Computed example of a mutant assay.
Amino acid sequence: MRKRRWFPKAWYHITARGNRKAEIFYDDRDRFKYLQLLREAKFSHPFHLHSFCLMSNHVHLLIETIDLPPGTFMKDIHSQYAIYFNKKYGYVGHLFEGPYKAKLQDDASSILQVSRYIHLNPCRAQLTFEPEEYKWSSYNHYLSPSPFYSDLITTSSILSHFRDTKHYEFFVQMANKVRPGHPLNG
């Protein structure tokens, strides 16, 4: 396996999918547990979580490292979550199809595109027409900060590229409106 490139302040689009594309979240408690493990990892192995989306069979995270590579915390998060999930549902074996994938984002444009991509994931999957209708992503925290996410999500870096929150909303929504199948697209 090729060693991942890492350096302090590196940004990664991290994805992980269920084994054989199976669901990794069955209910809200499962998603809360995953977020709890992210929060715990963030405090024990500091990093910045800029965007996330928890789908039924995969996750998207936009993470910026501080002093440690993502492998130091992602392995722990996924191991602990798999133990929780297998115990809760009486399963054995691998929950995730393999190690997480981490794509290095090396410029501001790609970081903004990935944040938008993550926030539009439920729309592309046709779970909702509008990203704000999906509660298991960081998008709503960008529009209206929530105390529940204030210690988990860092919005300031992404929002620093926009005049205000409404401008970021427009940036995301315009990509959504041109998506085939959207009601405003005929």
Results as ranks from 00 to 15, higher is better:
S56Q: 12
N57M: 09
H58V: 10
H58Y: 13
H58C: 10
V59T: 15
V59M: 08
H60R: 06
L62G: 06
I63C: 12
I63F: 05
I63M: 03
E64W: 03
E64N: 12
T65C: 05
I66F: 10
I66H: 11
D67S: 15
L68D: 14
P69K: 08
P69M: 12
P69G: 11
T72Q: 15
F73S: 14
F73L: 12
M74A: 10
D76N: 14
D76T: 15
H78M: 14
H78W: 04
S79D: 11
Q80S: 14
Q80H: 15
Q80P: 00
I83D: 11
I83V: 14
I83M: 11
Y84V: 08
Y84A: 11
Y84W: 08
F85N: 02
N86H: 10
K87V: 04
K88V: 04
Y89L: 07
G90Q: 09
G90A: 06
G93F: 04
H94Q: 14
H94K: 13
H94W: 00
E97M: 07
E97D: 12
G98I: 07
P99T: 10
Y100F: 15
Y100K: 02
A102F: 03
L104N: 02
Q105G: 00
Q105I: 15
D106R: 13
D106P: 00
D106C: 05
D107G: 01
A108D: 14
S109W: 09
S110C: 00
S110I: 11
S110G: 00
S110L: 07
I111Q: 07
I111L: 14
L112S: 01
Q113K: 13
Q113E: 13
Q113V: 07
V114C: 13
V114W: 00
S115N: 13
S115D: 02
S115K: 01
R116P: 01
R116E: 00
Y117Q: 01
Y117S: 01
I118D: 02
I118E: 02
I118F: 06
H119A: 03
L120F: 03
L120Q: 05
N121M: 04
N121L: 02
N121F: 02
P122Y: 05
P122M: 03
R124L: 04
R124V: 07
R124P: 00
A125D: 01
A125T: 04
A125C: 03
Q126P: 00
T128Y: 08
T128H: 02
T128A: 10
E130K: 12
P131C: 09
P131K: 05
E133H: 14
E133D: 15
E133F: 10
Y134V: 01
K135T: 10
W136F: 10
W136P: 02
S137M: 03
S138N: 08
S138E: 04
S138T: 07
S138H: 06
Y139P: 06
N140A: 10
H141E: 09
H141W: 08
Y142Q: 08
Y142V: 03
L143R: 13
L143S: 03
S144L: 11
P145L: 05
S150E: 14
S150N: 10
S150I: 07
L152C: 08
L152I: 14
L152A: 12
I153D: 04
T154F: 06
T154A: 09
T154I: 10
T154R: 11
L159P: 08
L159S: 04
L159R: 07
H161L: 02
H161D: 04
